[in-house]
Design a protein around this nucleic acid. Structure first.
Length: 407
RNA sequence: CGGGCUGUAGUAUAUCGGUCGUACGCAUGCAUGGGGUGCAUGUAGGCCGGGUUCAAUUCCCGGCAGCCCGACCA
C-alpha cells in the first residue's frame, strides 16, 4: 500500500482528554477515530490489526466449533424469557417507529439457544459448538480507556452444547482452555487463567487476564505456582488451591477473555432438550466462551509501546514492512516496493514527499515491525537500511537479498 | 448510577457584557532533503435551548456532550 494513497493521516497532537496510552497512540497513529465516548471508527490501518487478531482467533475456534453469524438486533421477548430484559443494566434497548422494542446484542445466549432448538434433537447430535465474531453493544455507564471499555466493541463468543455436565467439563478443559492458550500465545500476549465470579451467568468463571498498569481489574497471583484469582473472589490470606502457599502478589490486569459453565440456565429458559438413548427428554448443558478482540487490540498497545509509538507484535502488525523512501531514491524504492508485493510481503510504502524526520517519526508511531529505508546513500551501495522497530540498531542489506530475508 | 471537573479553531490556550487574539496543526507554493526543516500565503472557533440586558461567547437556569474518581462490568 502506498501511503500517499492510503486513507490514513497521523497526527502530531492528541486531545488532552484522552489519558489512556492505547487511545492516544491508536488515534495519533491513524488506526482509529473516536466517534462517541466508547465508540470508534476503525480506519483501514486499524482494521488490518483487528482483522489479524480476529483471524488468529478464528483459526483456533474453527478447531473446536463452527462459525456462524447472529444479529445485532434482538427480539425483546427472548430477553424477557430469560429475565434479563429488566435485570441486565447494560442492555441497550431501542424502540422502532412502530413502537416495537428490541435489544442490541450485548451477548448472544438469547439468540443462540433458540437457534439450537431446531438443530439439536438427539444425544447423537451432541456435543456441538458454534461461535461468531460480532460487534457487541453494552450501555456502559462509563466508557473509558480507549478500546479497553467501549459501548460498541468486537467480541468472539463461542457456545457449546452438551448432554452432561461431565461432557461440558471435558470440552471446557480439554478443548476450550487449550484453544484459548494457543490464541494468546499466537498473539504474543501473556494472559493468565484467573478464577473469577460468574456475574449473572454462573457461580464461577475463568477470566483471562493480562497484566497492565491501567487494567480495570485487580488480581492476585500465587508467587509460587502462578495461580491467579480475581479480587472479587479472593479471600485475604487464602491458601493457594494448587500449591498450598499463602504468598500472593497483587496486580492490575485487563480481562481479555471470560469463559463460563452455563449449565442449564439458558437451555431451561428456552426449553432446549434432547432425547437420550433411552428415549427420555433431557435438558441440555451449555458453556459460553467470550474473547474481546477489540479490547485485545487496546491491551496489546498498552503492553507494547515506547515513548515514540506502538511496537506491534509481528502476528498482529498491520503490515510486516514499512518501506521509506528518501528523496533521490524514489526509483529504487518504487522497484523494491513492487518486488516486495510480488514476493507476498505485506508492505506499507511511505512514498510521500515529506522530510526524512517526518517519515521516521511516523514509522515509529505506527510501529510496523520492520522498517526498510531506501536513501541515495544506501542505494548507491545497492543496499537498503533494515531496522526492527523493537531494536535500536539498523543494518545495511543488499536489495536483492531483502525479499528473502523478510520471508 | 453517586461524586468531581470541563465545554472558545483540529490541538493547546488568551481576552472580553459591545461580534474572539496567539501558537502549533492543517492546506497551497517555493526552497530544503538522514530524526517532525525554513519562508510566504491561506484555513478554521464561542455545544444547544431558555432567562436577564439596549446588547450574552461572557452573568443565571436547564439540557446535551466529554473527561476523571468510585460503583457496576456477558
Amino acid at each position: 500500500m502506498r501511503q500517499s494513497k492510503y486513507f490514513l493521516k497521523t497526527s502530531k497532537t492528541t486531545s488532552a482528554e484522552d489519558v489512556s496510552v492505547n487511545a492516544r497512540l491508536l488515534e495519533q497513529g491513524g488506526f482509529v477515530q473516536k466517534v462517541l465516548a466508547g465508540v470508534y471508527n476503525y480506519l483501514p490501518l486499524g482494521l488490518r490489526v483487528l482483522a489479524k487478531i480476529e483471524n488468529i482467533v478464528r483459526l483456533e475456534m474453527d478447531k473446536i466449533g463452527n462459525e456462524m453469524f447472529m444479529p445485532v438486533l434482538h427480539p425483546k421477548e427472548n430477553w424477557e424469557k430469560t429475565g434479563r430484559w429488566n435485570t441486565l443494566d447494560v442492555l441497550f434497548k431501542v424502540k422502532s417507529q412502530h413502537g416495537s422494542e428490541y435489544a442490541l446484542g450485548p451477548t448472544h445466549e438469547e439468540i443462540v439457544t433458540p437457534s439450537a432448538l431446531s438443530i439439536i434433537n438427539s444425544y447423537k447430535d451432541l456435543p456441538l459448538a458454534v461461535y461468531q465474531i460480532q460487534t457487541k453493544f453494552r450501555d456502559e455507564p462509563r466508557a473509558k480507556s480507549g478500546l479497553m471499555r467501549g459501548r460498541e466493541f468486537r467480541m468472539k463468543d463461542l457456545y457449546s452444547f452438551h448432554a452432561t455436565t461431565e461432557d461440558l467439563d471435558e470440552y471446557y478443559n480439554q478443548k476450550a482452555i487449550p484453544a484459548y492458550e494457543r490464541i494468546y500465545k499466537s498473539l504474543g500476549v501473556n494472559a493468565l487463567l484467573t478464577e473469577a465470579s460468574g456475574g449473572t451467568f454462573s457461580k464461577f468463571s475463568h477470566e483471562y487476564q493480562v497484566e497492565i498498569e491501567n487494567g480495570e481489574d485487580t488480581i492476585y497471583i500465587c508467587e509460587k505456582c502462578g495461580v491467579a484469582k480475581n479480587k472479587e473472589i479472593f479471600e485475604a490470606g487464602a491458601e493457594c488451591t494448587n500449591c498450598g502457599k499463602t504468598t500472593w502478589r497483587e496486580t492490575k490486569a485487563s480481562e481479555v477473555g471470560n469463559i463460563f459453565k452455563l449449565q442449564d440456565k439458558y437451555s431451561s429458559a428456552f426449553n432446549l432438550q434432547f432425547t437420550d438413548n433411552t428415549g427420555a427428554k433431557k435438558t441440555l448443558i451449555m458453556g459460553c466462551y467470550g474473547l474481546g478482540t477489540s479490547r485485545l487490540m487496546g491491551v496489546i498497545v498498552e503492553k507494547f509501546h515506547d515513548g515514540k509509538g506502538i511496537i506491534w507484535p509481528e502476528a498482529v502488525a498491520p503490515f510486516k514492512v514499512h518501506l521509506l523512501s528518501l528523496k533521490g531514491a524514489e526509483k529504487e524504492a518504487d522497484k523494491l516496493y513492487e518486488d516486495l508485493l510480488k514476493a507476498g510481503v505485506e508492505v506499507l510504502y511511505d512514498d510521500r514527499e515529506i522530510s526524512a524526520g517526518a517519515k521516521f517519526a511516523d514509522a515509529d508511531l505506527i510501529g510496523i515491525p520492520y522498517r526498510v529505508l531506501a536513501s541515495p546513500k544506501t542505494v548507491a551501495q545497492g543496499s537498503v537500511e533494515l531496522k526492527k522497530r523493537a531494536e535500536e540498531k539498523a543494518e545495511l542489506v543488499k536489495i536483492e537479498k531483502l525479499t528473502d530475508f523478510l520471508k
